[in-house]
Amino acid sequence: RSVHLACPMSALSRGGPPRSVQEVWEDFSLSFTPAVREVVEFARHIPGFQDLTQQDQVTLLKAGTFEVLMVRFASLFDVRERSLRFLSGASYSLPELQAMGMGELLGSMFDFSEKLASLNLSQEELGIFTALVLVSADRSGMENASLVEQLQETLIRALRSLILKNSPNDISRFTKLLLRLPDLRTLNSMHSEKLLSFRVD
């Protein structure tokens, strides 16, 4: 049975021969593991992250890797053209992706990307925001939640200060950005459900 994996990290190419589930997963793993390792490297460079217990570092990364990658890959979603460019370079229209069974999740990903893009974040703002996505004290199973919370508050203060410095006349920009955090949680849940159904299928 041939399958498609409508994920920007998939090596899916246009007009290629039908591939088995095993082939699709093997292709996917070539980009998946390096992407996760990059997220871990990013986390290690967040000041204070390595002071957390190792179990909390793992818990935060396990819970937040998808959300970090979603932020990182948001620019692959072409909101105007309603298309998604995969890391392989191939570009797919929304209807093509919907035909692969990615309707609701994909639409929500486009909505998120559009909202994030509208904030015109600088690289520095995006970096602190991404750190904040990862360092969330309310993830379940934290060993030392207060230490994570301290780091989270430090990041929130740093982000707020930077955004106010960069946009002193737009006080809503910081609030709008923080509102993207629950959006990411929702996308994370939807993605987990999708992944589960893919495996079950």
């Binding site: 093997e26 070539l30 593991t33 996760v36 390792r37 992944l195």
Partner: peptide
């Protein structure tokens, strides 16, 4: 999440990356 090529799950990949144990061998 899982890496079918190496039979590693997301948590294993994270733990290995955190410990730097990916560094001593090629992917």
């Amino acid at each position: 999440f899982a890496d079918p090529a190496s039979n590693l799950g997301l948590e294993d990949i994270i733990r290995k990356a955190l410990m730097g144990s990916f560094d001593d061998k090629p992917d």
